[in-house]
């Protein structure tokens, strides 16, 4: 009888892991400059935002964000924002919170800049969407720990590498929802625009994008939430901010320290979520 014993089951005969490791090593060796170049705009943006948030006396960002909350939603959210930030400051997490906020804002900016055009393309071209979809699935399901190592190897450690990891993690929802928003525009409206002599760009900017806007903003909200949840994981590769006390707490079994960091993340998440949702509803 033919035996299947040639497949050992407990050791790999296809050395995929070695190939990948070799591939990354090769990339690091030959394309390090290229990756440093990619890193540059992210680094500059992050640096600028961090500087902006931390250089000011602490009450100015608080008042600014409270004002945004008030304009976007109303008195209740404004009060909640104000109290939350005062609480965070009293917990001694002010600087960590501002670092995290800067990282979230930087990641979301890049997610928007990259994700919205990709989503528009996917929404308008079924072929592009077919190619895009498995990539997005992979980005969303691959455990972040898997790509943290190559990111460290290619971009070294620190806040910028953390933002890059965050961008990969938080990008899919904005692409998916932009695509969905563009798709959902009633075909007859596009036909009407074309019948009146709209060019492709006019159809996009005067019909598709305005009508897809609520859906795109919902995607942006999701992206913000995912970026925040990535912050803790990014701390594993040396990113600062609210992830650090959590990771430190985990490593030293200091429940209190981890919980305080976690609380600040939750407060920040609630504020950002409510603000963006209120804007999306308008």
């Amino acid at each position: 009888m033919f035996s299947l014993d040639i497949i050992p089951l407990d050791e790999s005969i296809i050395p995929l892991s070695e190939w990948i490791s070799d591939g990354i090593d090769w990339l690091v060796l030959n394309f390090r400059d290229f990756f440093q170049l990619i890193k540059l705009p992210v680094e500059l943006t992050l640096h600028g935002i961090t500087q902006g948030l931390t250089a000011l006396p602490f009450y100015i960002p608080i008042l600014l964000i409270t004002l945004i909350a008030w304009k976007a939603s109303g008195k209740r959210l404004a009060l909640f924002t104000l109290l939350s930030f005062i609480a965070i400051a009293c917990l001694g997490l002010w600087e960590a919170t501002m670092t995290t906020l800067a990282m979230v804002i930087a990641s979301v900016v890049f997610c928007g800049v990259i994700g919205i055009p990709l989503g528009v393309l996917a929404g308008r071209s079924p072929l592009f969407e077919a190619v895009m979809r498995p990539c997005l699935d992979a980005m969303q399901t691959t455990p972040a720990f898997v790509y943290l190592v190559p990111i460290v190897m290619l971009f070294s450690i620190g806040n910028t590498a953390g933002v890059l990891a965050t961008i990969i993690f938080a990008l899919p929802p904005i692409i998916r929802l932009t695509c969905l928003g563009i798709r959902q525009v009633h075909p007859e409206l596009i036909e009407a625009a074309q019948a009146f002599g709209a060019s492709e760009l006019q159809v996009l900017f005067q019909v598709q994008l305005p009508l897809a806007l609520p859906t795109i903003l919902a995607g942006l909200n999701q992206t913000i939430m995912m970026a925040l949840s990535m912050v803790v994981i990014a701390a594993l590769i040396g990113a600062g901010g609210l992830g650090s006390p959590v990771v430190l707490g985990l490593n030293t079994l200091d429940t209190g320290q981890a919980a305080v960091g976690g609380l600040a993340i939750v407060l920040l998440a609630v504020i950002l979520d409510r603000i963006t949702q209120s804007i999306a509803k308008k």
């Binding site: 036909e191 009407a192 019948a195 009146f196 002599g197 709209a198």
Partner: peptide, 12 residues
């Protein structure tokens, strides 16, 4: 596109 702009309109 120019032709549609100038010569024809449509009601749906």
């Amino acid at each position: 596109v120019k032709f549609r702009l100038k010569n024809m309109s449509m009601v749906f």
